[in-house]
């Protein structure tokens, strides 16, 4: 069954589409809006978005699979994304990645059984002055060490 967008999302999508001379150009922001509503982009959502923007579902799939930020599976309530790139690694990201894996009991790319956390390794987040850094959903946390990670995660509902 195709997912139904809420009235609010439909309104947001109409506003987004109006920013471009071609409907298709709204694809990335519309997919962001869809992901905000459903948490991930299913094949059914791809079809709905294709219908809305009058493009083929294949075209939408091609874009969804190209960009790393579109989740193709449901993710936990908190998506913990830790940087594994150079500046963060030079300041100890490696041991923090091991710590996160152990603490959450999952490997990078996995979700905890209670659907609370998804844990991912990502490339540079553009916050190298606060290395090592991570993102929880869209919030940035920098200058991390193990006690700080524990404090951040333990305070999440």
């Amino acid at each position: 069954m195709s997912p139904e967008f809420s009235e609010q999302t439909k309104k947001a999508i109409a506003e987004i589409v109006a920013r471009y001379p071609k409907k298709e150009a709204a694809l990335l922001p519309v997919l962001h809006a869809a992901q905000r509503e459903f948490g991930y982009i299913s094949r059914a959502t791809e079809k709905s978005v294709a219908g809305l923007l009058e493009i083929s579902p294949a075209k939408v799939h091609e874009v969804v699979t190209f960009y790393t930020m579109y989740n193709r599976q449901p993710v936990g309530r908190y998506h913990v994304q830790i940087c594994s790139n150079l500046s963060c690694s030079l300041l100890g990201a490696g041991s923090l990645i091991d710590h996160l894996s152990e603490k959450l009991g999952i490997q990078p790319g996995e979700t905890t059984p209670d659907q609370k956390f998804t844990f991912s390794l990502v490339q540079c987040l553009g916050a190298c002055e606060q290395a090592p850094c991570m993102m929880v959903n869209f919030e940035y946390f920098g200058n991390l060490d193990t006690p700080k990670i524990d404090e951040i995660l333990d305070n999440l509902e």
Partner: peptide, 9 residues
């Protein structure tokens, strides 16, 4: 207009 990318260097 602000247009957000989606994770691609």
């Amino acid at each position: 207009y602000v247009h957000r990318g989606a994770g691609a260097y």
